[in-house]
C-alpha cells in the first residue's frame, strides 16, 4: 500500500492540484448555469430568461399599480425602468419601505410574462441600498419618476 517513498510529495501535490482544478472546473460550470442575472424590465422583455431560471429584476414600483389579492398576502404590482414595465407577483411579508414609487429588486422567475418573486429587496434606509438600485437612481431616477408619476 505504501506509496513509493521517493514520490510521496509529488503524489500529494498531484492529488491536491487535481482536486483543486476539479473544484475550479465544477465552480465555473456551476456559475454558468446557476448565477442569477440582473435584469431591468427592458432587457427581460427583449431577451426573456428560461422560465425555471432564477433571476433578479430591478426597477421602480409604478405608482397606482400595487394591488393586494383576495387572499390578503399576494401582491401584484408593476416594475418599470421608464421604458418598459413588467408585472410582478409576490406572496409574502413585504419589506418595510416597499411602497409605490420606490425602487426594488425582486428575486424570482420570469414565467409567462409575469415575474414571480420569491423575495423582495427594498431600499432599507439611506445607508442600505441594493447596489443595482444605487446605479439606477443615478442614471434613471429623474426620468423614471417623471414617467411613472
Amino acid at each position: 500500500m505504501a506509496i513509493k517513498a521517493k514520490h510521496q510529495r509529488l503524489v500529494l501535490v498531484g492529488v491536491a492540484v487535481v482536486a483543486l482544478i476539479g473544484a475550479a472546473l465544477l465552480a465555473i460550470w456551476g456559475l454558468r448555469n446557476q448565477a442569477s442575472y440582473f435584469y431591468v424590465p427592458t432587457d427581460i422583455l427583449a431577451k426573456p430568461p428560461e422560465a425555471d431560471r432564477g433571476v433578479r429584476l430591478g426597477g421602480m414600483v409604478a405608482r397606482g399599480s400595487m394591488k393586494t389579492a383576495e387572499d390578503g398576502v399576494t401582491v401584484n404590482f408593476v416594475v418599470t425602468d421608464g421604458k418598459a414595465s413588467v408585472p410582478v407577483r409576490f406572496a409574502g411579508i413585504r419589506p418595510a419601505l416597499f411602497v409605490e414609487g420606490s425602487g426594488v429588486v425582486a428575486e424570482g422567475r420570469f414565467q409567462n410574462g409575469t415575474f414571480v418573486a420569491d423575495n423582495l429587496l427594498a431600499k432599507h434606509d439611506e445607508k442600505y441600498v441594493p447596489r443595482e438600485m444605487q446605479h439606477m437612481t443615478a442614471e434613471q431616477a429623474r426620468q423614471t419618476v417623471a414617467e411613472t408619476q
Binding site: A23, G30, L31, A35, S36, Y37, G54, R56
Partner: peptide, 13 residues
C-alpha cells in the same frame, strides 16, 4: 454584467 450567486450554485457544489 450584473449577476448574483446564491444557494443554487453553492449548495450542490
Amino acid at each position: 454584467l450584473k449577476v448574483s450567486v446564491g444557494p443554487p450554485y453553492f449548495n450542490p457544489t
